[in-house]
Design a binder for these strands. Structure first.
Length: 280
DNA sequence: AAACAAACCTGTGCGC
DNA sequence: TGCGCACAGGTTTGTT
């Protein structure tokens, strides 16, 4: 599912192929995708506008517009942003279409089978009211940078299970289930270790793992799993899944030590995979 | 403060 | 082969 590396890959696609192109016409199919505001608000807010940048905060995509408003897109679990030729057939569950100016004739398509995703047009000056969750986001390890000292502060300031802490967007923004498991494996730490129990060397490993895993995943264009349909704006999948060392590898040998990878459902009902030998 | 559950959806993959 | 059902997951909200 789209987490920081996947969303960052989409952001780069928007930067290259969406920013600077006037939105000539807007179609909103399913109202649920624009439930935050309304069909009319999104059509009015985007028609004639041009995105001046493509930004990312955690898993949120934000495009400031030349009108002064901003467009927010969240992919949630099954959302996709595709930029495709106007003449090409649209996928099922295409809920929002932005016809782009210039050539070639292309349109931005928001596709989302499970309809958890959102497209919002809001006024940045009023973000505290219209997009309150943005203000609650914690540090983005890539966009903001995350120092070892900051990680030390985060883990010492609370007594939480590490996986729950990594998944908490108000602590660190952008990590989801896949990268939480991969980061913890790389750091050789169990998901249920309490944050305030980490020794200095373990904090160092956690800090390093967060940056290393996320950067490698971005480099690989994210993870495309067999059951998910994550693709970038050009419709291409990522390939970081071939580098997963524990996620979705239940019963297979740990690539570090050979011990069978364990799978269990932990807090928040999230499936979790880890190596019982490498991770302590 | 932290853990836990439920809710929102629908395509997929499994067991029978 | 066909059917039904558990499952997947990001985030918010409410409860323990």
């Amino acid at each position: 599912m789209p987490e920081l590396p996947e969303v960052e890959t989409v952001r780069r696609g928007l930067e290259q192929r969406f920013v600077g192109r006037r939105i000539e016409r807007v179609e909103v199919g399913r109202e649920r995708t624009v439930r935050r505001t309304s069909r009319l608000a999104v059509i009015d807010g985007l028609t004639g506008a041009t995105a001046v940048a493509a930004q990312r905060k955690g898993k949120y995509l934000i495009c400031p517009l030349d009108t002064g408003d901003s467009m927010m897109i969240h992919l949630r679990m099954s959302g996709r942003v595709l930029i495709e030729p106007t003449a090409s057939p649209r996928l099922a569950h295409t809920h929002v279409v932005l016809h782009l100016g210039g050539s070639p004739h292309e349109e931005l398509r928001f596709v989302d089978p499970r309809t958890f995703g959102e497209v919002v047009v809001y006024a940045p000056d009023n973000a505290a009211v219209e997009m309150p969750e943005l203000a609650r986001l914690g540090i983005d390890p890539i966009a903001d940078g995350l120092s070892r000292a900051q990680v030390a502060t985060l883990v010492r300031g609370r007594s939480r299970q590490l996986k729950a802490m990594l998944l908490d967007q108000s602590v660190i923004a952008g990590i989801g289930n896949i990268y939480a498991d991969e980061i913890l494996h790389a750091a050789r730490l169990r998901h249920d270790r309490l944050s305030d129990s980490l020794k200095p060397a373990e904090i160092t490993r956690l800090h390093h793992a967060i940056g290393a895993i996320l950067r490698a995943a971005i480099e690989a264009g994210g993870s495309t799993l067999r059951d998910t349909q994550y693709v970038d704006t050009a419709g291409q999948g990522g390939w970081f899944q071939v580098s997963h060392r524990v996620y979705d590898r239940e019963g297979q040998p740990c690539l570090t030590c050979g011990r069978s990878v364990i799978h269990k459902v932990v807090a928040v009902g999230r499936s979790t995979s880890f190596c019982p030998r490498c991770q302590k």
